[in-house]
């Protein structure tokens, strides 16, 4: 969790100094709005994660964003077939920068046990992925761990990353147009 004490803060009378980057990153990390792209079995475990026992809302993730436009984190939970691949990509493209992707479960990460003609062998063939969660399906604790990892990434991401050539190059390799700023 991003506590204010984590940041390097210079205290003085009546003022505090820190870098804008750190303030923004902490704010982002503690209010990630996820878009659950739940297709199958992992979606039920994701429901359990959102449910009262595991309570995802503890991590500033109370608001599920069902519109990609207002989402920061794409949680892909479940099998993505070849038929669904383009739709997933479209949802990713509709999200505004900065955006992160969490791939929940073996199917989303690698196709899992379904090495078949109809299943996309890992969503990283169509969109870039930040964190993979193994398991078929993963337990809610694992999903929460994956989300914690995402929080770490968000907290330590430099503001310039999304404008860097590496990032643009990575998007180009997926045939995705960057926002172009």
């Amino acid at each position: 969790m991003g506590k204010i004490e984590d940041m390097q803060v210079i205290n003085g009378e009546g003022y505090q100094l820190t870098s804008l980057e750190k303030v923004l990153a902490t704010a982002r990390a503690n209010s990630v709005w996820p878009l659950p792209f739940a297709t199958s079995c992992c979606g039920i475990e994701f429901m359990a994660t959102m449910g009262s026992n595991y309570d995802l809302a503890r991590f500033g993730m109370e608001r599920m964003s069902f519109s990609p436009r207002q989402a920061d984190l794409l949680i892909v939970a479940g099998t993505i077939s070849k038929k669904l691949g383009p739709i997933l990509k479209q949802a990713y493209e509709q999200m505004a920068e900065p955006k992160w992707v969490l791939s929940v479960g073996a199917c989303a990460s690698s196709g899992g046990i379904f090495d078949t003609y109809s299943v996309l062998q890992g969503i990283d063939r169509v969109i870039p992925v930040d964190v993979y969660v193994p398991g078929c399906p993963p337990r809610p604790e694992q999903i929460i761990d994956g989300i914690m990892k995402i929080h770490e990434l968000v907290k330590h991401e430099p503001l310039r990353r999304r404008y860097s050539d590496e990032y643009k190059h990575m998007l180009t390799s997926y045939n995705i147009e960057s926002d172009g700023e």
């Binding site: 479940g78 993505i80 077939s81 669904l84 046990i113 379904f114 078949t116 109809s118 299943v119």
Partner: peptide, 9 residues
Amino acid sequence: YIHRAFEKL
């Protein structure tokens, strides 16, 4: 959309 080919598998 999530056809996974159970029967072939």
